[in-house]
């Protein structure tokens, strides 16, 4: 068996994956987005990462799988890197970390409301404006430029904005 000088653990790998960003929302890492649901590392540094899709039709998923492999293969003494997608853990917007929510806000995207189990029609209606924080806003459309975003308008600062929609 090959001798490895550096042994990685799950938490090391998780930290490296914080450098992998969502191509559709570049300020947020896939770790903060909450889609990395499993990391396993063997004593030969073979790494297996499991991702869960945000939306079933998310076109960025394949790209993110490739980015994970690309990042981890750059590590010294790394073994085989494999990635799979699984629905075993159902992704919800509650899985976005605090850092992730801050990153969304800085990007001008209203963070999703939390713990939305069963959505009522008005769940998106008073989304706080990411520019002026006013709740005097209205939903323009539950569909935006990507599957995970909705379109809103702020009556207070008179600006259109996008939100990350709760699922």
């Amino acid at each position: 068996m090959a001798k490895v000088d550096t042994l990685y653990n799950e938490s090391d790998i998780r930290n490296f994956l914080k450098e992998v960003k969502d191509p559709e929302i570049p300020p947020i890492s896939i770790v903060d987005l909450g889609i990395v649901t499993k990391i396993s590392v063997t004593d030969q540094n073979d790494v297996h990462v499991t991702l869960t899709p945000t939306f079933a039709g998310c076109p960025a998923l394949k790209i993110m799988e490739d980015l994970v492999i690309e990042r981890l293969q750059k590590l010294d003494d790394i073994g085989e890197v494999t990635v799979n997608t699984s629905f075993e853990t159902t992704w919800t917007t509650d899985m976005i970390s605090e850092d992730g929510r801050k990153a969304l806000l800085q990007h001008g995207l209203a963070p999703p409301k939390q713990n939305v189990g069963y959505m009522e029609l008005d769940v998106l209606s008073d989304t706080p404006c990411p520019y002026c924080s006013s709740r005097n806003t209205m939903l323009k459309s539950p569909f935006g430029p990507t599957l995970c975003r909705s379109l809103h308008y702020c009556n207070n600062c008179k600006q259109a904005f996008e939100g990350f929609k709760p699922v």
Binding site: A56, G57, P142, L147
Partner: peptide, 20 residues
């Protein structure tokens, strides 16, 4: 425009679901 985007987004959801 919003309706154009809505039907396009729903198309993407449906196709993604069909693939899975």
């Amino acid at each position: 425009l919003e309706e154009d985007i809505a039907f396009s987004s729903m198309a993407q959801d449906k196709l993604g679901q069909s693939e899975h």
